[in-house]
């Protein structure tokens, strides 16, 4: 048997696609033939995505989306549908961290992380689901984190959202499986991105000592798993959380 992954004729929406894991996912899906709408929070970020796509010969465009705003989401989907058609591959990747010990955590640090990382997954997914059920085909892939399973001091807000996303995915998978829609969660470990570059050196070293593969992951190594789940090759996987962490946490 030969394994070919093609996403020709598919339209994919990837949130938070200006850098890091989201950028790698958008570029990988695009490289496999999908038309990609990659979102960024600013107009400058969206332009950079468009420029990157053009340079790599990827169909699609960068667009502005504030995942916490229903109005911004409605605007994005309308323009994306008019230009490219309704997305049937959705990658909920946009996320933020606002780390703090719980005893010091501000309500705003809790609420903004919940809104961006968890409520937005509800919001964007719901908005895209109607077209997927009509198409009788869809792929929803939510980017979680190893922290959602193993926990991490100072990240109670972030971890709550990442565990929440996995439970959301399992429930939705049960709801929409009969429509040919799969819902999965990909949980990256310690990946070399701007989000992990800010960690203090001592914390980086202590994390590295816990990774059997002995190195950080590359964003492309998350993107390849997402591409598999988005393709027909991954068509029988649903409701699952795939851990991609170099062995740092084995579930």
């Amino acid at each position: 048997m030969t394994l070919t992954i093609s996403l020709n004729d598919k339209v994919a929406l990837v949130t938070g696609a200006s850098r890091g894991i989201g950028a790698a996912i958008a570029d990988t899906l695009g490289g496999l033939g999908a038309t990609v709408i990659g979102t960024a929070t600013s107009a400058g970020g969206a332009e950079k995505i468009s420029a990157r796509f053009a340079e790599k010969g990827i169909a699609g465009a960068g667009k502005v989306l504030d995942v916490t705003s229903p109005e911004s989401l409605a605007e994005l989907l309308e323009s994306a549908k008019n230009e490219f058609g309704a997305p049937t591959i959705l990658v909920n990747n946009a996320g933020i961290t606002k780390d703090n010990l719980l005893m010091r955590m501000k309500d705003d640090e809790w609420e903004s992380v919940i809104d961006t990382n968890l409520s937005a997954v509800y919001r964007v997914t719901k908005a895209c689901l109607r077209d997927m059920t009509k198409a009788r085909w869809g792929r929803i892939i939510n980017i979680s984190s190893v922290v959602g399973s193993m926990g991490n001091a100072g990240q109670s807000n972030y971890a709550a959202t990442k565990a929440g996303v996995a439970g959301f995915g399992r429930s939705l998978a049960a709801e929409v499986g009969s429509r040919g829609i799969t819902v999965n969660t990909v949980a990256p470990g310690f990946i070399d991105t701007d989000m992990t570059k800010v960690l203090p050196e001592a914390q980086r070293e202590s994390l590295m000592s816990k990774i059997p593969l002995g190195r950080l992951g590359a964003p492309e190594e998350i993107a390849s798993v997402v591409a598999f789940l988005a393709s027909d090759a991954g068509g029988y996987v649903t409701g699952e959380t795939i851990h991609v962490n170099g062995g740092m946490y084995m579930a």
Partner: peptide, 11 residues
């Protein structure tokens, strides 16, 4: 019809 069918029907 199941519950999802009825939602889709209304849509």
């Amino acid at each position: 019809a199941d519950s999802l069918d009825t939602v889709e029907l209304v849509m």
